[in-house]
Design a protein around this nucleic acid. Structure first.
Lengths: 216, 216
DNA sequence: GCCAACTTGAACACTGATGTTCAATTTCTG
DNA sequence: CAGAAATTGAACATCAGTGTTCAAGTTGGC
């Protein structure tokens, strides 16, 4: 038989998960994991790694890969989704209560490594997937930041003179910039979290107020 | 004869200019301009517009284009170079003396539209050209910002607790983020300059100092 | 141990782009 | 106006990646 025991593309539109994993055989599940792992690594290194590269890295035949992911886009989508879910899980552990400034600092500390890793995968996704899909995947993370910022605005900790949306953008933008600078060797990885937090906290401070000292 | 009267790829490595324009015939010069103009427009709209698209937009045969630009990469390089030169020229008109905060605000005001336009061209370049080339093209602009920031640090107007390099990155990052948000309709174009300046000035403020009010 | 699920490599068709060649024409320039 | 420079479309050679098919082999589950 062919390599497609169960349709991987039966979902209305852009399919994600390779169908119900639970029902497939053990070796299939194992391979799917291996493929996703390999894809994550390969795409992180090179945003347009070929399907062949990924299959090889997963120690799997190309045909097998296509058996589980109908198209390259499907695979990328699956990797992105999975990475974001992992991130969300990790970020769920962060305490976002208390002083918004401290909460944000904690969030940045926990996020920035993830962003670093995600960065290249995201690039791959942006070339392959429709913008709304990218947006959708980011939704939870976006809200997380949004919530803290909103709370900070309410308590007067953060500035109120700029669109809330923009402040969220600022946070993401700085994280990605730090990731890129680190990758390019222009920023010390151990220093990055501190640098980003310090910059972001200042950026969020209302005109007229004093910028909080990093050693808060 | 073929369409290549004078070599466009004789420069040691990555060729830029399509050889000495002055010596070519009037129609050739006209076409080169048309091609660059079209490429700028096309690439701004879609970072991976095809050579065929660009030629058509320029009202020129594909062969003619290849007569002037040996490869697609050459063309992209030429467009990038030219755009940056135009930008530099425009930015030369800006007064960078006086209060660093005001100087930076002026620079942001003048730059951000350019960044907006450049944004997609840059993306194209990043996929096609070696990183060092990208870096090299940005050099002058980078220095311009660097200089103001250094001056601000000297006078105590800007923070001293983060790497100068990072502050420059921050400036660029915010500009590009604004460009993207504007393109996506998440930020009002008329508001963008103000928003970026306000954010950047706050980000550059030293911990313990008050953020300058936008209405400076 | 049986059967279906799964994997595999080789081979193939397809696509979309780049870059080249040609022979015929048009258009500058002196 | 004459000749060189430049343009042109059509046709072609590549090329790299995607996605499919096939027939034969493994492997897991019951």
């Amino acid at each position: 038989m062919a390599a497609t025991p169960r349709g991987a593309g039966d979902r209305s539109r852009s399919a994600q998960q390779p169908a119900a994993q639970a029902e497939r055989r053990a070796d299939a599940r194992r391979n799917i994991r291996a493929i996703l792992d390999a894809a994550q690594v390969c795409l992180a290194r090179d945003a347009d790694a070929s399907v062949a590269d990924i299959a090889k890295a997963a120690g799997v035949g190309r045909v097998t890969l296509y058996g589980h992911f109908k198209t390259r886009a499907d695979l990328v989508d699956a990797v992105l989704t999975r990475t974001m879910e992992q991130s969300d899980a990790a970020l769920d552990a962060i305490d976002t209560a208390g002083d918004p400034r401290q909460a944000l600092t904690r969030l940045v500390g926990a996020s920035w490594q993830i962003v670093h890793q995600l960065h290249s995968v995201l690039q791959a996704a942006q070339r392959e997937l429709p913008p709304e899909r990218i947006r959708a995947v980011h939704d939870r993370t976006l809200h997380r930041v949004q919530t803290i910022i909103d709370r900070g605005r309410g308590s007067g900790a953060f500035r109120d003179d700029l669109p809330a949306r923009w402040l969220v953008t600022t946070a993401f933008s700085l994280m990605h910039a730090a990731a890129e600078d680190t990758a390019a060797g222009r920023l010390d990885a151990d220093d990055a979290a501190r640098v980003v937090s310090a910059t972001l906290l200042a950026a969020l401070t209302a005109p007229g107020s004093a910028v909080p000292t990093p050693a808060l």
